[in-house]
Design a protein around this nucleic acid. Structure first.
Lengths: 213, 213
DNA sequence: CGTGCATGTTACTTGCGGTAACACGAGTCT
DNA sequence: AGACTCGTGTTACCGCAAGTAACATGCACG
């Protein structure tokens, strides 16, 4: 039969693809984002051209690999964001979930954030393409949650999107720095960031004798 | 004489270095961060090995190039941050200065933010090395300003650093997204971000009938 | 059986980062 | 003057990784 044939083939191809992705995962976890296609193919027990047949080019493989982790991370973030608790508590839980994830697997995190030169075709002023898709997706998701649940008055959609991307960027940069220097505990970091979002910066008083801020 | 000789040589070497950097600048502005050493050498009217003699390796050239722009940007940011005005106004001016800079020269901005695989020696868990140095420097500078001028009580230094990096990350991510999609004017973006820092997220009310946030 | 078709291989091209070896010109030491 | 050094410049090469072409094999279907 045609259809059963097709599905069989497709199923086996999908399984193969998954195996290749898991091999790639192992290599990337070991060697970082600069893992070579040769190394990945060797880990999978095959040779390069097969990888290219499955994923097109290196960018394709990396995109597929990134999607798996990104989806997983976004799922846990959504769970934290949907927990039944007060707003502040949920924000803290979400921050903590993210930080725990990057703390547990820094190599994966680095891979996701630094996709290492993907395309090269954009001669013009196209900037957006080059930042990590994970950040964008997180920003958009958070924006949607904010816009759905908060009453922000006119212009709420744009405000929500700005805030979504801004908060995600705050979390990302602080997490990156923290992961490198480990200047405090995760809980401290979470509390400090939540304080920032809760306006403690604006509310703080000037230092006595200083020029003010 | 020894000393005059030395200084003469050094001066000419410095001039040469500057010329090379300007040539590199032109190429990077044209081709983006993936500009090849060959292309840069050609633009400078010379060949590769000279570049390597001056800058060691590609990372060295890029570091030197990045330092110029980074220093320039940090200078304007400091100016905005030091202006005689109220806190909110100064924060907005700083945000606007940054956004105006990345808006005016997106290629430079991309180059600074995505240094494109520098080293490769870090087998271990070294994460910090890979993020853009510009973000780190901005974060540290802002942290210093915050800690100098604000009265934050105990643990102020760590709090200031978290906030410094967090705010910079917020600005960066929001700017990156905004530059790609241009969903609103620069002034709108600045106002929205400042609102976020001023705690409007925490203060907003839940949407009626929604699950709360 | 032959015909597709997916899967696999070897061997190659291209392009880039980086280096070795050599060549020229100008000032310095004896 | 002639040898020495030193900075600047070149050509020609190595190594390595991305990506491709061409060929080989196993398996279902008519």
């Amino acid at each position: 039969m045609d259809t059963t044939q097709r599905t069989d083939q497709q199923r086996s191809a999908d399984r193969r693809r998954r195996e290749l992705l898991e091999a790639a995962d192992r290599v990337v976890l070991r060697d970082g984002p600069q893992a070579s296609m040769n190394a990945i193919a060797a880990e999978a027990g095959i040779t390069k051209p097969i990888l290219y047949r499955h994923f097109g080019d290196k960018g394709g493989l990396y995109a597929a690999l990134a999607k798996r982790h990104t989806d997983a991370l976004l799922d846990s973030l959504r769970a934290a964001l949907d927990a039944p608790a007060e707003r502040r508590e949920r924000v803290e839980a979400t921050l903590d979930t993210y930080l725990a994830a990057i703390e547990a697997r820094p190599q994966v995190y680095r891979f996701l954030m630094h996709p290492a030169e993907g395309s090269q075709s954009d001669q013009g002023f196209d900037v957006g393409k080059h930042s990590a898709p994970l950040l964008r997706r997180m920003g958009e998701e958070l924006a949607q949650v904010i816009e759905e649940r908060l009453d922000l008055g006119p212009g709420s959609q744009q405000l929500a999107r700005v805030w979504g991307h801004g908060i995600v960027g705050m979390m990302h940069a602080a997490g990156d720095w923290w992961l490198g220097e480990r200047p405090c505990s995760r809980a401290d970091l979470v509390r400090s960031l939540a304080d920032l979002l809760w306006g403690r910066l604006a509310a703080a008083g000037d230092k006595v004798g200083g020029p003010g801020f």
